[in-house]
Design a protein around this nucleic acid. Sequence first.
RNA 1: GGAGGGAUGGCCGAGUGGACGAUGGCGGUUGUCUUGAAAACAACUGUGGCAGUGAUGUCACCGGGGGUUCGAAUCCCUCUCCCUCCGCCA
Length: 426
Amino acid sequence: MLDIKWMRENRDALAEAMRKLNDNTAPWEQALALDERRREILTRVEALRAERNSGSKGIGLLMREKKTAEANALKEEMGRIGDEIDGLDAELRTVDAYFEDAMLRIPNIPEPDVPVAEDESGNQVVKEWGTPPTFDFEPKAHWDLAEKLDIIDFERGVKIAGSRFYVLKGPAARLQRALINWFLDVHTAEHGYTEVYPPFLVREQAMLGTGNLPKFGDVLYRDAEEDYWLIPTAEVPVTNLHRDEILEAGTLPRSYVANTPCFRREKVSAGKDVRGIKRVHQFQKVEMVKFVEPEHGREELEKLTRDAEELAERLGLPYRRVAIATGDLSFVAAIKYDIELWAGGCQEWLEVSSCSLFRDFQARRANIRYRPEEGKGTEFVYTLNGSGLALPRVIIAILENYQQADGSVVVPEVLRPYMGGLEVIA
RNA sequence: GGAGGGAUGGCCGAGUGGACGAUGGCGGUUGUCUUGAAAACAACUGUGGCAGUGAUGUCACCGGGGGUUCGAAUCCCUCUCCCUCCGCCA
C-alpha cells in the first residue's frame, strides 16, 4: 500500500509511475477522490462528535445535580446530533470501504533505476555467470532423462492429483532433499539467516499483508468452508511473522529462511509448459525474507540477490541476473531481479529466484513498524524477499547440465555429502 | 465436536453505564542529591487520523466487527484467539 499523504502531494509522480508500469487499471484517481470525500465527512462528523461529547458530559453533571428537566432537554438535543452523526457515519463507512479497497489495488512505485518498458521485452540481462555446457551428443530434456532413469513418475502423479503433479522417486527425491538441506545450511551458517518452519495455511489477512489478495486470489488454492488459504510461497507466512508489531531498531535487519511447499493454481497459463516439472501446482522452495531499516533497502537487496546467486555458482550452474522492467514488475515490488539458470537440455533459461525490494509497501499493509534509534515515534520497515532457491527448476538444471552420453547424471560435488556420497545417478 | 471461563497500555493488574485514554505497581527517560554508582525523591513516559505554517485543537483506539444509549472499557450480538473439562486423534 502506498502512503496516501504522499499520493496527495505527488499526484504527477504517481500518474507517471502508473504510466511506467503500463497499468491503466490501478484505481489511484478513485482513491484520491475518495480520500477527499472521506476527509470532508470526517471533519464534519468529528465536529459533531465533539459537540455530543461535551453535551453528554453536561447531561451527566445535570443528572448528578438532579436537574432532570434541563438534562432531558439536553438529551433531546444530543439525540438530534446523534441522528446526524449516524447518517454521516454510514456514508463515511461506505466511502472508507471503497477507499481501502482502492488503496489495496494500487501497485507499488518502481525505483528510479528500473528499466522502463511496456512489458517483459524491456527486461535487461545485467549479469551472466558461467558457460553453458557443450555436449558431444544430443542432450535430452529432463522429462526424457528422468523417465529413463525412473526417478520422476509423471503418470502416477497425474493419476493421483491430475495434470501438473508429479512424483519424485529414489535419487530425485533425495536430490531435492539434499538441495534443501544444503541451501538451508549455507543460508543459516554462512549468510546469517534464522530458519523458521511456518504454517502452510494462512488467513486472508496474511494474504492481504503480502499483497496476494485482493487482486490475485485466482492463482491461490483455498479451503471451501473455512478462512484458510494455501500459501503460494513462504513469503506469505514469514513476512506476516511480524504483522502488527513494532520492532526495536537494534534488532534489524532480521533475516529469515524457510523451506516450504508452494501451491499455485497456475490458471492463467493453462496449456503452457505442460511437460516436465517446470510449471507445477505444488513445489518446494527455500525462501529468504528480510526486515530492514529503509536506508539499507538497496544494499540488502544486493546481498540477498548474491545469497541466491552464490548457490548457483557453487553448484556450477550457469545463470544470469535479469533486471525486471517496469511493465513486467510484480504488483508489490519496487525493484526486482530474476535469477535464471541455463538448462542445457530444453535450451532455456529457467527462473529459479525473484529477489525483490518492496520498500514499505508490504509493511504498510501488514502494519510492520520499528522504532528508529534517533528521533521519536515509529516508522514502517522495508521488506525484501527472494528464493534461495526454487527446487524443481534447480533439479531440471542439474539433470540437464550434468547429463552424460549414457543418460546418467553426475551429482554436483557440493551435494555429494548430502547424497550419501553418491557421485552419479544412473 | 460439546460445556464453561477469559482477552485492558512495553509488562503485571484495577475498573460493571457519566470528569476513564483509563487507579496502582513494574519497567523506561530525564532531573535533584552524590566524586561516581546505588538508594531515595520528583517529573515525564501508548498508537494513529483530521484541521492548522505553528503553538495547538479535535476525533478514534480497553482482542476484531456490529448494536443499544444523550453517553460504552463497562450492557447485547457476532467473529478470532487463549485457558479448563469432556470427546476424538498423528
